[in-house]
Design a protein around this nucleic acid. Structure first.
Lengths: 135, 135
DNA sequence: TACTAATCCTATTATTATAGTAGGATTAGT
DNA sequence: ACTAATCCTACTATAATAATAGGATTAGTA
């Protein structure tokens, strides 16, 4: 199936949604894993880039966990997905910089792939965590 | 990298573009593989669903090959991609029918994934082979 | 001070999907 | 007969995905 989002991006959004629900209080990955039925160890790998990007803050030790570093209205689904998965580029030759060798020279569809990427980003960036909370 | 199109869909569009360029004459996979530097054996697997779906016609034997079964203006990139790769469904729980077990229950983002799928289809369906020829 | 609950960090592994390859059977022009 | 093509099935190598395992560090609490 084309244009699939892996579980990494999927779970990252679930995780951030739970943090948004928790508000200012710190929330442990074990809690989130319990609610969403996902492996805590896997969530650890997913939350790291979000922390490094400054989207969440962490607190170690007893009573620790994670909380949003910004208000839910200032974090979009696009921010989350791109942070854990990288930029949305449907095919390599549609990305920035030189066209890789694997991509045939006369790829007339390159403009189409670029438009697809932009359309995806546009949808992802139009939805904030606050929007998700209000549903 | 999220929302990637595999080479199958990518090559299918290249292949159909070459058939469109060839017009009414039959074109062999070896020819196309030569132009696009892709394995002919792999193209065979890709062209089969296109033939089964009635998008191309084949002729066997000496001088045989493939040709478009419809005018280029009536074949969109979306037709091609969905035929070889299946429907555009970014995450499983955003598809038709019941939500699979793997998808957590409170996946508030499901509507977002659906909108992403629709946006992708919209772009893909807005471009025909004739559009590609005219670039 | 011990205990516990949490983040941190690295490495390993099982499963699946992708991207082919290989080999032969059939068909049809020359 | 020869050749060039589609047809068809099966196999395989590689890479990405989706985790798991095991321990080190940190910070509250009894």
């Amino acid at each position: 199936m084309p244009f699939r989002l892996s579980t990494r991006g999927h779970y990252a959004v679930l995780l951030m949604y739970e943090l948004a629900r928790a508000g200012d209080s710190f929330c442990s990955l074990a809690d989130i894993a319990g609610v969403q039925k996902v492996s805590p160890g896997y969530l650890e790998q997913i939350v790291r880039p979000l922390r490094d990007a400054g989207l969440v803050e962490s607190r170690r030790g007893f009573g620790g966990g994670y909380t949003l570093a910004l208000p839910p209205s200032q974090i979009t689904v696009g921010n989350i997905v791109r942070t854990v998965e990288g930029p949305v580029v449907p095919v390599k030759c549609a990305g920035e910089g030189d066209v890789p060798d694997e991509c045939p020279d006369n790829c007339q569809a390159r403009r189409v792939w670029r438009k697809v990427g932009e359309a995806i980003d546009s949808v992802l960036d139009s939805v904030t965590l606050e929007d998700l909370l209000q549903e």
